[in-house]
Design a protein around this nucleic acid. Structure first.
Lengths: 343, 343
DNA sequence: CTGTTAGCGCGTTCAG
DNA sequence: CTGAACGCGCTAACAG
């Protein structure tokens, strides 16, 4: 058995509550007994029993992160990996543990959020997926659970009533397209994905850029992949005719963009000379292969750390702060895949 | 407040322990009262308080995974991502939660294993890093904590006394080299990494293959990267002279191999015609770019699921099973980057 | 089959 | 400043 406060009490010749006070930096204790107790605790490698502690304090010192089911899919993974890395940092600073869960248990079908909340396994939740149901929000609110939506912008009317941190996807789609237009392109295909709200927003940005520049919108130029390298590649290999009609592509995922570049290599089409390509996400991989990918950078570091800090503040606060919706600006990163000028 | 067994007892007009029995599928209860209780529990969305439960059962229903600090580094990440995905599956089957932690808290410097174990936050540990100290093993054993080393082969004399699942790295290094030799190559560079035991083993395999085939070992042909794409790329761009002396490269990481391929594209050296390249890991990315990478497949799925199953068995067993060291066989995956024949 | 009674380890009154 | 006593929510004997 592990050592308990009671054991220490015995060793120190004091009561268990005194030990508790000493270990919790209570002011109600003399320096002398505190020192004695601390010393023993050190020697015995004492650690609080987390369950017992949670039971009486109602704090678990762990937060849950809910990832979407495709978290581990290639490419998606790339992006989340970096989020995760940032979370780790914020969490370590505050000595919090991290439970990773997914929307639901694929076997028992029980909802993870529900389980973690009502089972009191976490103090708060970072929700990084885009399927928020009214019931879920309901649960979050009635249980007063601190939570924050990460990355995915919450849809719906009550948008200002949920805590969320995300980057402006419409703006990103706009910036990418605008860049191509400013380079002289007028026939721009959009390789997007039918994978949720964020892609819809990116397409909205694409359309707005066209409109703003007086370029007619052509539905045929919108292609739908599934975010993966393979889909970017395949789309290009299949749609022969399309390439004759366009001079540029805005891909809504870096990995799809890489797939497109690979397809172009196969077809001996030079990028950026014959075709300009811009990606989205700015994953590390984007600047490895040549031509280095021009892309939209999402402020992952900021998103993750802001979300985490905000969540931890919510947890430490007694009274709930105002719900806050934070939108961060994406940024165009110019590298090589679009060239610099176009005649 | 969440609903408790006591509340249900009140509602059902029975004692709290009866509720507990009903909810825990005890046979010591009539179908009738069981039904009544279950119904109420359903209606009230009852969930056990995890802390209270752990406190009395000494089970947390969560396992910890300790990842190395570079978990999130590019490329390394790729590999772990797939491990993680497999873990999720095994864990969900048994209704276990997952706490992700790293070797130590970078701020407080406290050891995660120590903290999770003695703080009773987990029932067992999957340790996926290669820095095992004697103290750590000591702790694991004296506390009787179920654990298993994942992926990293434990060094040291007491190798058969720790639970571990890994793939045979020496064999992998051997297979890769042997393949190149069988294709006729005799001047084979080895792009390895100075990043732990596993790479030493891969180099050992390289050497053994050479030796077995009567090819003299030349230390100059061993290059050290840091596992990343960039290091593979840079190494090739810098060592001009090397390329004149060799016809093949065995890279000890797929991402380094991809970096090498990219460097070759820059130099207009054709792969596999002018240079054969074999990678290591078989990450998903490996078969996206052309030429598709010939590589060593590590049985990740098996490693992760075996480790997980084994750990869960250890957790459920009262008396500790024999420590088991499981070595899995890597496999050569022939694709395009080595060609099929060499004249 | 069911209720009563003890803890599990810790935080927290309430008296000294 | 310190100790005794209680409760957090649940499981596990122990009686009936």
């Amino acid at each position: 058995m592990a050592i308990t406060t009671k054991d220490i009490a015995l060793l120190a010749g004091v009561s268990q509550s005194t030990v508790s006070r000493a270990l919790n930096n209570s002011p109600l204790i003399s320096q002398k007994t505190r020192d004695k107790i601390m010393k023993i605790a050190q020697e015995q490698h004492f650690q609080f029993n987390a369950s017992a502690r949670s039971l009486s304090t109602n704090k678990t010192h762990t937060v849950g992160v809910i990832f979407p089911d495709d978290y581990m899919d290639y490419g998606v993974n790339m992006y989340y990996g970096e989020l995760h890395s940032q979370l780790r940092d914020s969490l370590e600073k505050r000595d919090m543990d991290l439970i990773i869960a997914f929307k639901e248990n694929r076997y028992s079908k029980v909802d993870s959020i529900q389980r973690l909340i009502t089972g009191r396994k976490v103090d708060g939740l970072i929700i990084a997926h885009n399927e928020s149901t009214p019931e879920m929000l309901q649960l979050l609110h009635t249980t007063q659970t601190p939570y924050i939506f990460l990355h995915f912008q919450h849809e719906g009317d009550s948008t200002d009533q949920v805590n969320q941190v995300f980057s402006d996807q419409e703006k990103g789609g706009f910036l990418a397209t605008k860049h191509l237009i400013s380079l002289g392109h007028r026939h721009i295909a959009c390789v997007s994905a039918d994978a949720g709200h964020e892609f819809t927003l990116r397409r909205d940005g694409y359309k707005r850029a066209l409109k703003e520049c007086g370029i007619p919108y052509n539905e045929d130029l919108i292609l739908y992949g599934d975010r993966t390298f393979q889909s970017g590649y395949n789309l290009m290999m299949e749609k022969e005719h399309l390439l004759e009609k366009i001079t540029a592509i805005t891909a809504h995922t870096d990995v799809m963009a890489l797939g497109i570049l690979e397809a172009m290599r196969m077809k001996n089409i030079k990028v950026p000379e014959q075709l300009a390509v811009v990606g989205y996400d700015d994953i590390e991989l984007a600047h490895y292969f040549h031509p280095h990918l021009t892309t939209i950078h999402q402020p992952r570091e900021q998103i993750a750390s802001l979300a985490c800090e905000k969540l931890l503040d919510l947890i430490e606060q007694k009274e709930p702060l105002e719900a806050q919706s934070i939108s961060l600006e994406p940024e165009l990163v110019i590298r090589e895949s679009c060239g610099y000028v176009l005649t």
